[in-house]
Design a protein around this nucleic acid. Structure first.
Lengths: 190, 190
DNA sequence: CCGGCCAAGACGACTAGTCATATTGGAGGG
DNA sequence: CCCTCCAATATGACTAGTCGTCTTGGCCGG
């Protein structure tokens, strides 16, 4: 049991720290110190820092706040809006820093780490498919009259979200998120 | 003159190398080796690696392929499409690596370097304004019937571009760019 | 001679990962 | 039940670099 729990502490801590400062700036030492775990123990649980990061992205993908929107009273588009809203609230709560963990890792490591590129690809792919599924429900419910291919649109909306988060880190105000919401829900999906 | 030329060689080389592998992965040694310049000379011209990177982003912004689209025969929307197309061709030509230099730097450094955050902010801001100006010309020419606020739309389109380039690095195929073009020109701007 | 510019190599901080040693837990025997 | 031994696991000092930056000596020109 203790070994299992130490491992989990490392993953949880790494998730927080990688998101806070990014992969390159976050050393194994930083993680283990923050986790209160001896540095030498790290390699009992993870083959490398890269392996840990891949696992962290998988965990984040499964547990992101996105998944916490489960109110059955919401229409499909209301649900989609709530999902993006809650993710945006996290960004704002962090003072417009950190952006999106998945996008950050893709940006930083896609050209350098094949396991990470594969993980980010899977994470973004699954996320976009979820958006497209919600769009299909919205279309069936008569919530949107768009004639766009909904798989294309789901992916595109996610791209726009990643870009908006990036710009939020840069301008440090609400404008990118406001632009996103008004364009996606006010133009593309009406 | 020689100092000026060495300095320029460093900037040109840095532009290439920073874009190829990103800020953190690109050491001063990497740049000076590639430039054929003694490493010790570097600090005669630049206060720091960060200062160089800021200057590189400014230079890239001024000289990106985006600016090379000047055919007066093109309608505003044709011009906009050509501008994005030529930028996309660079990505494809590099095997779907590198993404967008400005976005990359913003991603990697916005939370760590204030001068870089300011530069990326200026670069993205200017770029988005250019897009919005083209959209206004398109509206006046009757090319688009969108009723969106064109300043909002310009910024949003640029966000979507950044996100599409990120995803291109991850999936390494044409899908993100295709999604971008069909949604922006097939949905938002028709 | 003096001042300014150049650049080689030194400097100190930091990194991911290793490994010799310490610790712990489980199994077997009395 | 207790004790001993052994194997597996834990750990912190260490290794072998890399890094950005600085210092100092040399060179050149006025």
């Amino acid at each position: 049991m203790p070994r299992h729990s130490v491992r989990d502490v490392i993953v949880e801590t790494a998730l927080r720290e990688f998101h806070r400062i990014g992969f390159a700036a976050c050393s194994v030492d930083t993680i283990t110190r923050a986790a209160g775990v001896p540095k030498g123990s790290f390699y009992n649980h993870f083959k490398s820092k890269e392996d840990l990061a891949v696992e962290v992205v998988a965990k984040y993908t499964a547990e992101a706040e996105w998944n916490s929107v489960i109110d059955p009273e919401l229409t499909p588009l209301e649900k989609l809006r709530a999902q993006f809203r809650i993710m945006g609230d996290v960004l704002v709560g962090n003072g417009y820093t950190r952006g999106c963990m998945i996008g950050n890792m893709g940006e930083e490591l896609a050209d350098h780490s094949e396991p990470m590129r594969a993980q980010v690809r899977a994470s973004l792919g699954g996320w976009a498919e979820g958006i497209s599924a919600t769009l299909r429900a919205a279309r069936e419910a008569g919530e949107t009259s768009t004639d766009a291919d909904l798989d294309v649109l789901g992916r595109y909306i996610l791209d726009a979200w990643e870009g908006a988060l990036l710009r939020s880190k840069v301008v440090k105000n609400d404008q990118p998120l406001d632009d996103f919401f008004s364009t996606v829900f006010g133009q593309l999906l009406r």
